[in-house]
């Protein structure tokens, strides 16, 4: 049987994304392991690194991140573990407390948006206030970007670094949408 190679859903967009100027840089993040944890809020301190309990925030969690998705729901990611290792590690910690964990590594992919104008690009299809005064590093939001549901993470305190987690089947749509939204900040050459 032929070996099935995992391909990135945005492979076909890689040249178009590379052509963008630094002020509206968009790069597809490599795959990371992700897991959704459901755990009563009172028990959220149980994991070795505490989960964020303030709505719409994220915190560093080992090599990855812990994102608040709901009062009893978090998205954990890890850049060094395989999805199986991450799920097993979290399961050992939360199942005795009545929680559950599900591997969702294949659900979302990350798009890293860096540059001075990415906030203007995001603002074209996102209604929440992204000014660093209210959406600085550590904030997150689950919202709509264009027509796609996304998890938006602020990685910088000056509003020039965002991570957009989007469902893999929406990634192509969102990449097209972002390229279109970035058009006005992209220098065009007649030659």
């Amino acid at each position: 049987m032929a070996e099935l190679l995992r391909t990135h859903p945005l492979q076909a967009w890689s040249t178009a994304l590379e052509r963008l100027p630094d002020t509206v840089g968009i790069t597809a993040e490599p795959f990371v392991a992700m897991a959704v944890v459901r755990l009563g809020a009172a028990a959220s301190e149980a994991l070795d690194a505490a989960l964020p309990t303030v709505p719409n925030t994220w915190a560093q969690h080992g090599t990855g991140r812990a994102v608040w998705l709901g009062p009893d729901e978090w998205l954990l990611s890890s850049t060094t573990e395989t999805p199986e290792q991450l799920e097993a590690r979290i399961r050992a910690a939360v199942v005795p407390l009545g929680g559950s964990v599900t591997d969702v590594s294949a659900q979302r992919i990350g798009l890293r948006l860096t540059g001075a104008r990415v906030r203007d690009v995001l603002a074209k299809g996102c209604s929440i206030d992204l000014h660093p005064r209210v959406f600085g590093r550590g904030n997150s939001a689950q919202t709509l970007l264009g027509q796609a549901g996304v998890v938006l993470l602020a990685l910088s305190d000056v509003g020039d670094d965002f991570l957009v987690l989007v469902r893999a089947s929406f990634a192509g749509y969102l990449a097209d949408w972002l390229l279109d939204a970035a058009l006005e900040f992209t220098p065009t050459h007649d030659s």
């Binding site: 709505p55 719409n56 709901g70 009062p71 209604s127 929440i128 939001a141 689950q142 919202t143 709509l144």
Partner: peptide, 11 residues
Amino acid sequence: PWCGPREEVEF
């Protein structure tokens, strides 16, 4: 009550 003010289309 959790996320604060958001646009109507999200609901």
